[in-house]
């Protein structure tokens, strides 16, 4: 079965305060970099998924992103299927 490589980027919605991002921005200034105007911290989920075809992989990845990796109340997500290594499975 084909193996799909994906990355899901999860970020806080713009309307949600990001205290960790703000603290990191303050630290950037202490490092001597004063020009940081905006800094938001999210997370990346890298995964490999076996699925019969790309459409199924896409649907399953969207389900995972929306119902597990991100909480849509406070977070947005973005899906990249970066590489398809079809036919590599024994």
């Amino acid at each position: 079965m084909p193996l799909y490589q994906a990355r899901v980027l999860v970020s806080l919605r713009p309307s949600v305060l990001d205290p960790a991002g703000e603290a990191t921005r303050a630290a950037a200034a202490r490092l001597g970099v004063d020009g940081v105007r905006r800094l938001r911290i999210g997370k990346a989920v890298d995964l490999e998924l076996e699925a019969p075809d790309r459409a199924t992989a896409q649907a399953q990845l969207e389900q995972l992103s929306d119902r597990l990796f991100a909480n849509p109340v406070i977070e947005n997500w973005q899906l990249e299927i970066s590489e398809s290594a079809e036919g590599q499975q024994p």
């Binding site: 949600v16 305060l17 205290p19 960790a20 603290a23 909480n71 109340v73 406070i74």
Partner: peptide, 17 residues
Amino acid sequence: LTEMGLLPGALTRNAKL
């Protein structure tokens, strides 16, 4: 309970960390 959807909204990091 919020993650389950039994209550609405979400709980996030304290404003002052």
